[in-house]
Simulated assay, not measured.
Amino acid sequence: MATLCLTVNSADLPLGPLLAVEHVKDNVSISVEEGKENILRVSENVVFTDINSILRYLARVATTAGLYGSNLMEHTEIDHWLEFSATKLSSCNSFTSAINELSHCLSLRTYLVGNSLSLADLCVWATLKESAAWQEQLQQNKAPVHVKRWFGFLEAQQAFQSVGAKWNVSTAKAKVLLTHRACQSCSSQPTLPG
C-alpha cells in the first residue's frame, strides 16, 4: 500500500484525524503536513475532505488498531458518536442536552463503545477539546463528573499527549474560545485566557 497523505489546516486544527493518525501510524504508512484545508489523499483519484470520512477510512484501513470496533453493532455505535459529535455536541443550541446525554452514557463506562478506545472516543474527545463551552465548564468546575473523568482519562494517554505536543493544541484552544464568543446563540460567554 502506498503512503497516505493527510494535509491539515493548522488554522482549523482537526484533532480527531490527528489522534487517529497517532493510533494507526504503526499499521499504516501515513504522512501529515500542514496546508490550507483538511484532506486525506489516498491515491491520485481518491481524496477525502470530510472529517468523519477521514476518520472512518483511517480506522478501516488499520483494522488491527481496533478503532472501528469489532462487530456490526459497535460499527453502528461508533457511527452514532461521530454524527453526535458533528451535530449535537458541536452546536451551541444543543450543547447542554448533548453533554448531559454523554454524561449519562459514560456513567458506567470507561469507553463510549465496547471495552477499548475507538473512533467514538477520539472524535467526541476532540470535539470537547475544541469546544469553548466545555472549556468553560471545566474552568468553572461545572463539568458533569462522568464526562470530566472520561475526558481526563483520555487526555492523560500518551497518544493524546503526543498530538497536543506536536500540534500546539493550546493555540487551537484560544482560537475556539474566540469562535465561541462570536456564537450568538450560546447562553454564556467565556473569558479569554490571559
Rank of each mutant, 00 (worst) to 15 (best):
M1I: 01
T3D: 04
L4E: 02
L4Q: 01
C5M: 04
V8W: 05
N9P: 03
N9E: 10
S10F: 07
A11K: 12
D12Y: 10
P14D: 01
P14Q: 01
G16V: 02
G16W: 00
L18T: 04
L19T: 06
V21I: 11
H23W: 04
H23E: 14
H23P: 00
H23D: 01
V24G: 09
D26M: 03
D26C: 02
V28T: 13
S29P: 00
S31H: 03
V32W: 10
G35Y: 09
N38L: 07
L40F: 11
L40T: 08
R41L: 05
S43E: 09
E44C: 01
V47L: 12
T49F: 03
N52A: 12
N52R: 13
N52S: 14
N52L: 12
Y57C: 04
L58V: 06
L58I: 06
R60K: 15
V61E: 13
A62M: 06
T63G: 08
T64R: 13
G66L: 02
G66W: 08
G66D: 10
L67D: 09
L67S: 08
L67W: 06
Y68D: 12
G69R: 14
S70K: 14
N71F: 05
M73R: 15
H75G: 03
H75S: 10
T76G: 02
E77Q: 15
I78T: 08
I78H: 06
D79I: 08
H80R: 14
W81Y: 15
L82N: 03
L82E: 03
L82V: 07
E83Q: 14
S85D: 03
A86E: 12
T87I: 11
K88T: 15
S90T: 07
S90V: 05
C92V: 13
C92G: 15
T96N: 13
S97C: 05
A98S: 15
A98G: 10
I99W: 02
I99H: 02
E101M: 08
H104M: 05
H104W: 09
H104E: 14
C105W: 02
C105I: 01
C105A: 13
L106S: 03
L108R: 13
L108K: 15
L108V: 10
R109Q: 13
Y111L: 05
L112Q: 07
N115D: 15
S118P: 03
L119Y: 10
W125I: 05
T127L: 00
T127M: 09
L128A: 05
K129R: 14
S131D: 04
A132K: 03
W134Q: 01
E136V: 00
Q139S: 10
A143E: 02
P144V: 11
H146S: 14
H146T: 10
V147S: 07
K148V: 07
R149P: 05
R149M: 08
F151I: 04
Q157V: 01
A159W: 06
Q161C: 15
Q161F: 00
S162E: 12
V163C: 04
V163P: 04
K166G: 00
V169C: 12
V169L: 13
A172K: 03
K173Y: 08
H180S: 11
R181P: 02
A182D: 04
Q184C: 05
Q184K: 14
S185N: 11
S188W: 04
Q189R: 15
T191M: 12
T191D: 15
L192I: 13
L192D: 02
P193R: 09
